[in-house]
Design a protein around this nucleic acid. Structure first.
Lengths: 256, 256
DNA sequence: GCGATCAGCGGCACG
DNA sequence: CGTGCCGTTGATCGC
């Protein structure tokens, strides 16, 4: 048994910093201390060490690892008292330590895996925002964009615009259902703009949906909601928002 | 080649719904469409299918998968035109589809992995909040707790308390550096309480740190900040906040 | 480096 | 189920 662990350590050491993705499977318990602290009792787990030194312990549920560390310095050692192969990950800033104590190792291998091919994603908020910038009139007739991603002292406005009556309008774009957070954000931005410019300013949340409590808060704050339909939120009805200017998600997807 | 793919399909089909963690490694491209859409060009990747039907494509960087789906219905098929083994994941609500087209498979295996042993975590916000509830006087002399996790119409207050002058005090607890969001949250809660109770209400953010812009917004809103030291944020100085009532993170960690 | 926000957020707890 | 919010958030982008 101790031999198997020593053999595993040998293999591991040769894999570390090889640029390959390392997979270790075995029985272990895990200690973490850093931004928080945790202990995980003994059990079979998968340890994944990637080329960018990300370090992740996976159980057999959930997308995300149960314990992890990014940009970790990894090392191995045999703890002969505990009869364990200890695989550790360290980091400073913040100072963190993660130790995996393997008392049994079933599998150790390294694989050549694509490091970081770019994902072409669409339907992001940035993309929506860009499309809106091209023609804000889909939100309201006579609305013209002034600036996008305008930094304030406390926050960043998605789009700042002017309506037909020359009122300033702050637009907050959300790719999914607008929540309380979005409303609080918009309110904070509008108040700041009013303070800076010294004149009444409108605020519009632009999203495919909004819940009832967020809508009520929005109204309480004197802000507005503008529905921007998305195919996924409105699969059967026609697209009402940007049908003339913007393709639906599905159409965009097919084009690329 | 096609035989290898067929063989891989056979193996995979026997592994699916076996309760084991399935690992597939090979060359693939990936299409996703659902809440958004994405395409990932060809490359070697690892596919991880867990017992709870979570489905994740990993590249060789990042903690999180490049493509994924939770609670997915998985299936396999051979696309003889493309000479691919297609592993798909479907979901309704929201309607999503993820397809992985493997033109080469290097590795297919299933492992017995602990399903979901509980992680004992400490240093969470809930834990901090519980400790604070026991004695709010560490924040301010004469402060007494009234209720914890008080739901409002629009949001949930961490702790609601009363100061020595019988003023209502809303406390927002953050386990890490307080940000603009925390300030906006607190402000929204305080305003709601003032509306409901019809009297001036104080608001305190309780966190180990706060940035300068959030602090300025806090002051603009007439709210307060109370530092609650955490060892990790203050490794050399003495613990000032809860030293009498609360153990440090390290001490807590050792105890368990 | 810090700051601010988004995320196909995921995950959880509560109503 | 939806709603709200935390997270060792992670990841990204701008300063």
């Amino acid at each position: 048994m101790a031999f198997r662990l020593a053999k595993a350590k040998e293999k591991l050491d040769s894999f570390l910093n090889s640029g390959k993705m390392i997979v270790v499977i075995g029985n272990c318990f895990v200690h973490y201390q850093g931004r928080a602290g945790s202990k995980l009792a003994e059990g079979n787990r998968m340890l994944l060490i990637k080329a960018d030194n990300s370090f992740a312990i996976h159980q057999n549920t959930k997308l995300r690892p149960i314990n992890y560390m990014m940009n970790a310095q990894s090392s191995t050692k045999i703890d002969s008292e505990k009869n364990c192969l200890v695989i550790s990950a360290f980091k400073r800033k913040p100072k963190e330590k993660l130790e995996v104590f393997f008392n049994q190792i079933d599998f150790v291998q390294a694989f050549e895996i694509e490091r970081e091919k770019e994902l072409r994603l669409f339907g992001s908020e940035r993309e929506l925002s860009d499309l809106l910038m091209q023609d804000l009139s889909v939100l309201e007739k006579g609305l013209t964009a002034l600036k996008k991603e305008q930094p304030l002292r406390k926050g960043i406005i998605d789009i700042i615009a002017e309506d037909k009556d020359k009122n300033l309008v702050v637009v907050e774009v959300k790719r999914r259902k607008a929540d309380l957070n979005a409303v609080r954000q918009l309110y904070s931005y509008v108040k700041q703009v009013e303070t800076i410019k010294g004149k009444k300013t409108r605020g519009i949340i632009c999203a495919p949906l909004i819940g009832k409590p967020p809508m009520e808060l929005l109204e309480k704050y004197g802000l507005e909601f503008c529905r921007l339909d998305y195919e996924i939120y409105n699969p059967k009805e026609e697209i009402k928002g940007l049908q003339k200017k913007q393709s639906t998600l599905t159409e965009l997807y097919k084009k690329r």
